[in-house]
């Protein structure tokens, strides 16, 4: 019976040694045990990366199409010139360096001229108000916007400089005439629908905001 005990101990120790050495050799240091949160995070990252890959593939396709178009045009000089002129015109139009004509709306923004007992700041048109209204207009599809004849570009600033507002490096005073080209009904709704920013300014603060739809509006190009 004594033999069994010794054999048991020997076999167990042998197995332990074998497995321990195997485990040590297997170098598990590079692997970490992860919990369910880490798995979720990693799978989210994987999904995002997969989406990125799809987007990049679409970019490759569109770039390839453009390249093909250039390849087709490069043999014929006249075609190339016409194409490039067209591209220049389009780029200028987007950048705001051309006059734009179309349907749209006119907005007149002025300070509250009535005598009130409250803080004077509630009766003035501020740079923030202009910026918010501009964003509302852009959000509802305005293609070109000007404020008192100053074309709004991608780099245009709208900053309070005391009694005036600085737009394209020049001071502009109230009343402000905002012209916007786009779908006139949508633009009109962006300023007159209940609880829009302009609606609150008019109804709660008493600022003068008049909106007019028009079928023919000219917005001048940007001039230095």
């Amino acid at each position: 019976m004594r033999f069994d005990k010794k054999a048991n101990i020997l076999i167990l120790a042998l197995l332990i040694g074998l497995l321990l050495s195997l485990q040590m050799k297997n170098d598990a240091k590079t692997y970490a045990f992860i919990n369910i949160n880490t798995v979720a995070t990693l799978s989210n990252e994987l999904d995002a990366t997969k989406k990125d890959i799809v987007g990049l593939k679409a970019l490759i396709r569109s770039s390839g199409n453009e390249l093909n178009r250039y390849e087709m045009l490069k043999d014929n000089d006249e075609d190339m010139q016409a194409f490039l002129r067209d591209e220049i015109f389009k780029t200028k139009a987007v950048a705001g360096y051309t006059n734009v004509i179309g349907e749209g709306i006119l907005v007149r923004l002025a300070d509250n001229l009535e005598e009130t007992q409250r803080n004077i700041n509630f009766d003035l048109v501020h740079d923030v108000d202009i910026a918010m209204i501009l964003n509302d207009l852009i959000n509802s599809g305005a293609e070109a916007i000007s404020i008192n004849g100053k074309r709004i570009l991608s780099k245009t600033e709208i900053i309070c400089i005391g009694p005036l507002i600085r737009i394209n490096g020049e001071g502009v005073g109230a009343p402000f005439i905002i012209k916007a080209i786009g779908n006139k009904d949508q633009l009109f709704a962006a300023l007159n629908a209940p609880h829009t920013y302009a609606y609150n300014l008019r109804e709660s603060y008493g600022l003068e905001i008049e909106t007019m739809k028009s079928d023919f509006i000219l917005i001048p190009k940007y001039s230095d």
């Binding site: 010794k6 076999i11 120790a13 042998l14 040694g17 074998l18 321990l20 050495s21 692997y31």
Partner: peptide, 23 residues
């Protein structure tokens, strides 16, 4: 003593054997 002997033999066999498994 048997335990120590078995452990040493097992370790030796394990290190000599060229055997790995998935993580």
């Amino acid at each position: 003593i048997f335990a120590i002997i078995g452990l040493i033999i097992g370790l030796l066999i394990g290190f000599v054997l060229n055997f790995t498994y998935a993580a």
